[in-house]
Design a binder for these strands. Structure first.
Lengths: 115, 115
DNA sequence: TAATTATATAATCATATACTTATATAAAAC
DNA sequence: GTTTTATATAAGTATATGATTATATAATTA
């Protein structure tokens, strides 16, 4: 597959969302691993509401989905999105996120529980 | 090839530039055909300075190049850009621009010379 | 049920963005 | 050399964006 054609307005909207360093990194991380907000907070030097607002924009566009599990809300890439193919193609061109994922897994904020 | 990895800041900057309907359309058109400003003006419902300013941003980022030929300055995609592969991958997901190119070629502003 | 934890939302604000009109520059035509 | 044509640049402006702090909500724990 990997060939879904999007309307130009739709495509530019997706690209604008990915045109922010924080959101692009979030998408890259979520493409490898579902995360809750407090896990993503380990990666970014910004407030919790900022991260939540970025996630909201990505969710509003259908790029990610959320699933509550207890007190945590886990975010993951929405593979059903019509933009999924475009995103996969873009992700091929950015650095892998193993270092950021290491940060998350090293600290395990969902066990520590004081984010 | 088609696998150039860009720094995350660099990639997000390129995506932000393409995250505008006008600029994304310009890039799609230029990927098929070099154009001068007065040709692109046939496609967009906006002022000449607006189109020029979009072209300037794309040029500043190295995505396009310009070549003066007489009174016209022709813009084209810069295949030497390190973002070229990313752009090609993105262009696969947006509609082809034959209708817009038809508009340009039908009116031939460089012959009419009153843009 | 009260306190804690995780997350979302609201309000605010400074900066960025995308347009406009006015003007400058540079080549072509007269 | 003056006028026209093509394009760029400058200045101004309204709106969008991305952050912050403060507060609300919802689940968990004590």
């Amino acid at each position: 597959m990997r060939e879904t054609i999007l309307e130009i307005e739709n495509a530019s909207h997706i690209l604008k969302l990915l045109g922010d360093k924080t959101r692009l990194t979030i998408i890259a991380i979520l493409s490898k691993r579902e995360c809750c907000v407090c896990e993503l907070l380990e990666v970014f030097d910004m407030s919790q509401p900022s991260v939540s607002q970025h996630l909201r924009k990505l969710k509003d566009a259908g790029l990610i989905k959320e699933e509550r599990r207890g007190q945590w809300i886990y975010y993951s890439l929405n593979s059903q999105s019509e933009s999924y193919d475009l995103i996969q193609d873009i992700l091929q061109h950015i650095p892998d996120q193993t270092e950021n994922i290491r940060k998350i897994e090293e600290i395990k904020p969902t066990l520590r529980c004081d984010c």
